[in-house]
Simulated scan of single mutants.
Amino acid sequence: MKNLAKKLLNVMDACSHVLKNGENSFHHYKYATSADVLEKVNAALVENGLCSIAVPEILDVVEITNLKGNIERLATVKMDILLIDKDSGETVTLTGIGSGQDGGDKAVMKAQTAAIKYAYMLSLAISTGDDPEEDQNTDKNMEGKRSGAKELSSEGEKEEPLCEHCGRKITEKVSLYSVKRFGCSLCMQCQKRQAA
């Protein structure tokens, strides 16, 4: 598996970060779209001579009643993705599980999309710059307990970090991620340039 492992490392390096270009206007959050993840992963797989075969398995489809009282279907799908090295014939299987809910006929497709997206994101360690387990209320409550001393402005408020390259204001999470990955505080645009 040496040949395949080397190529997978190249793929992981090329796909280390995907920007959150999608926006859920109803719930007001940004997310990395499946299309963005697949585009980046596919380009890296092709460049490294790896082909992929996705095999979905429907684990469950149940009817549920949504908050408006309408019946919808909730599907759960397991996605196995077989990666094959064109040069050595070595293989590895990535697996993801996803759920999708829909009032029409799209529950299974939504579940498949989530399963393949997260199979790649988790197996290839793809970052979107945030933590899906984040709970901002818990984080705010714990913030004072974790760090006794903080940098404060003259008014006593915590100062926002700045990008060390362009000077833009960035969030603390973006700053922490970029320091970990690049060794300095960078905005998303400068991180992208640094990674290129």
Rank of each mutant, 00 (worst) to 15 (best):
K158Q: 10
C51D: 10
Q194K: 13
G104W: 03
C51L: 04
M109T: 13
D131S: 11
E57V: 03
E63S: 14
D102V: 02
Y120L: 06
M1H: 14
D36N: 09
Y29S: 09
K106S: 01
G129D: 01
E23G: 14
E164M: 07
I84D: 07
S16G: 12
A119H: 09
M1Q: 08
V62S: 08
C51Q: 05
S88M: 08
A75G: 00
K173G: 02
A43L: 12
V41W: 11
K30T: 08
Q191P: 02
L45C: 02
M79A: 01
A119K: 07
G69V: 06
G167F: 00
S127G: 11
I97P: 07
G100K: 09
K180P: 00
N141F: 08
P56S: 03
M121H: 02
N141R: 14
A115T: 01
A75C: 02
D105E: 06
C51N: 10
R168T: 04
G156Q: 04
A125N: 09
N66E: 01
L186V: 01
V55L: 14
D85G: 06
E72G: 03
K78R: 09
Q189H: 13
E134S: 11
L50I: 04
Y177I: 06
K86Y: 05
V55C: 12
Q136H: 15
N141W: 10
V41A: 11
C15E: 02
V62G: 01
V77Q: 06
K117G: 02
Y118K: 01
V179P: 04
I53K: 04
I58Y: 08
D105I: 06
T128C: 06
